[in-house]
Amino acid sequence: MSYVLETRGLCKSFGGIVATDNVSFKLPAGARHALIGPNGAGKTTFVNQLTGVLTPTAGQILFEGVDITGWTVRGRATAGIARTFQINQLFADLSPLESVVLAISERENAGAHWFKPLGARDDIVNEACALLDALGIGDVRAARVGALPYGKQRLLEIALALAAKPKLLLLDEPAAGVPESEREQILDVVARLPESVALVLIEHDMHLVFRFAKTISVLVNGALFCEGTADEIARDPRVRQVYLGEEDVGHG
């Protein structure tokens, strides 16, 4: 089986604190995978190493068999790794259309064009519009991003990630903080993501995880606790204990 992503013995420590502890992880092409774990398990730290925001202390990251451990954020983005952020990272002063047009232009190596006015490339504009429509935010494409409701901003996060036509998409709590009324729209978008994209869902919400993920990894204290299919994980008493334990702490 071919793997789109692989990590070998990945470690990251901050001072004396070990945030990622020897994680070896394989992700097949087209996967629907979830990365779960209690608060502070190191999920976001792990994702930040995959995308190049953080440099691992030790270990390797391979993307489609190529060692990308030393690559920059942009290099990885160009290679086909896209992500959404747990907290919205958008261009507040641009419109959704402008944001997506820029992302597509960069993918098409047209980002440095300085003479032709924006919107001169019909193919890029059309693709951007189609993408925004597909995600159900075509109606607000000309609005100011900073003024959009939170749910629409979350969808734009996903749109920006998809604009790069990624082979691997890392969704960091895509529905976090979204009001109940706008939630279903986001879940629907996630469900309809193209098969060709390998998906890693970093989630806290178990309903969401079991709705989309076929396979699950559980991260505890920075280390891989266990892996398996959704059913196996759901039945695993140790996983229950990890989460119940956390809940006890939460109520105590």
Binding site: A77, F91, L118
Partner: peptide, 24 residues
């Protein structure tokens, strides 16, 4: 008013996100 200019505004707005969508 070009794509290049738009990418500058994007960098000003959020350099982290600009990098993540492949802006050098």
């Amino acid at each position: 008013h070009s794509t290049f200019g738009l990418s500058l505004k994007a960098i000003k707005g959020n350099a982290l996100r600009a990098r993540a969508i492949g802006v050098p």
